[in-house]
Design a protein around this nucleic acid. Sequence first.
RNA 1: GGGGAUGUAGCUCAAUUGGUUAGAGCACCGGCCUGUCACGCCGGAGGUUGCGGGUUCGAGCCCCGUCAUCCUCGCCA
Length: 589
Amino acid sequence: MLYQRTATCGDLSSDHVGQMATLNGWVDAYRDFGGLVFIDLRDRYGITQVVFEPDSGAELQAQARELRNEFVVGVKGIVAPRLAGKENPKLKTGAIELRARELVVYNATPTPPFEMHGPAPNEELRLTHRYLDLRRPSMLKVFETRHRLGQLMRRMMSEMGFLEVETPILGRSTPEGARDFLVASRVHPGHFYALPQSPQLYKQLLMVAGFDRYFQIARCFRDEDLRANRQPEFTQLDVEMSFVDDVMVTSTMEKLVAEMAREFTGHAPELPLPRLDYHDVMERYGNDRPDLRFGVELKDLAPIAAMTEFKVFREALEGGKRVRGICVPGGGGRYSRKDIDGLAEYAAGMGGKGLAWIKVEDAGLTGPIAKFFKPEAQAALLAIFDARPGDLILIVADSQAISSLVLTSLRSRLAAELDLYDKSAFHYSWVVRFPLLAWDAEENRYVAEHHPFTMPLFEDLHLLDSDPAKVRAQAYDLVVNGEECGGGTIRVHDPVIQSKIFALLGLSPEQANEKFGFLLSALRNGAPPHGGIALGFDRLVMLYCGLDNIRDCIAFPKTARGTDLMTGAPGTVDPRQLKELHLRPIQGS
RNA sequence: GGGGAUGUAGCUCAAUUGGUUAGAGCACCGGCCUGUCACGCCGGAGGUUGCGGGUUCGAGCCCCGUCAUCCUCGCCA
């Protein structure tokens, strides 16, 4: 039996006093006074207090007294003003209450495994009962923001002339990039579809088709290990444009970025956004997605290290390694020797073999390695960091990769711990001119830094033959608060350059043709110069909701090991299904 | 694949150096209560301390293994 509702739990106000109303919802709380029972009734739109008074009848009162948290009920009653002075300003509907006349219990639920009020229970439990977790108001808020972001993107992209096109989920596996999720074909024994890592190739083909401006809010799949900001399936705003260079793509997308910022932070960044050179950023911040809400830049300390007698530094330099450091304002006063040991342990977790430190004090430099710094070295150290008493200097002598990783991680951690920036601030920038290729020592070949269809910078084209590692790409990443929120490139539309790049990637013409024949053929058949970008939709939701975890903005996410605790996916399947798909488990696994 | 953290009542947590019968708040059950709003008061029930071994007179606590969740390196754009 359904009481058809005449209002939601967020609707009723003084305007409705005296009217009959019917509400449906969940019992958010019950307060039983014996002669008087109150129910807070909750739905997506709000909470309305329902009161069961003695004059409503013994039967109804007895029924009301049986209600428990999270029961699903319908109530018919009369909207009445609350007693004078008993209004609840915390509720939108706090001026009134519903005097119950009839009650129906749709679902008398068992005691919930956790409470909807108060702090969230552990995540394992939340994911197991996700439908209950999503009832918590903070979760609903995230999904309202997520919805608004999607609407804003659709509106902006449409206004800018982009055409929304859907592309296949069942595609074909291509080499390079992430590991594919595969789907076995029943009709074609031994053949497989792959789920898209992104709609990359399709959107390029849409440009060849002349669609000119394409976008899609697209689901992407990558079978790689997960992180706080990575799920096996995630959503991107996928974009492609024809007859553009990199500045045209970024300047178009900036308009969207500014609109998002205005909508979700109340403050739009100044355009154009800063365009930072990849190599410069790597040197100054140690990664390609620098958090620019604060300084604390990495400095090359090789010249100063060479002035010292400290063996660790000297050997590092002689071994072709780097000596770099950061200076953390106020860190010297805040971090004890033991705290710094903790930082060293943190660094060790990332492969750092040691963490040298020096405290800047009024009397000079202190710490175990300070004695290796002669006065002129001390002065140089203070000068390069513009260090002041109370600061903490952290130095790493290690490979380019390790010193970068350790210092950039310490930089972020310490800035957060020391409150070196406004946590509510947003900083947007482009990082541009990425390397086109990276040398893969294991496979003994180049691999694409972004993907194999990335166009080199025109001025670097000649290096493709002589020094491929030096070739820079027409690539750009959108970085927000140290998070990579998007990335794209201008694509190769010239079959000759494309073949050259395939060759560098170790793909023979035959292999390239086998894997990408359709693309190469399309490029030969009238491909315009084109390029695009994809924004990480989930990551943007995270940022604008202040979440530190991508799972909290996905309705039904996977755990770090890729399982769904609610459904039990991935699960075993009936042997008959395997047989139909021509699959047989490998012995012993 | 590597490193780290966590796992005690339905939930959130506590339990001194390894030492009596593992506690508290919330939730749950029973009772009382006519203006509460995360009501209040009284009473009650609820535990294989993730799981399996081991050390010990004695283990929630120490050791080994294992499972799950989270963070992270590798991986991934």
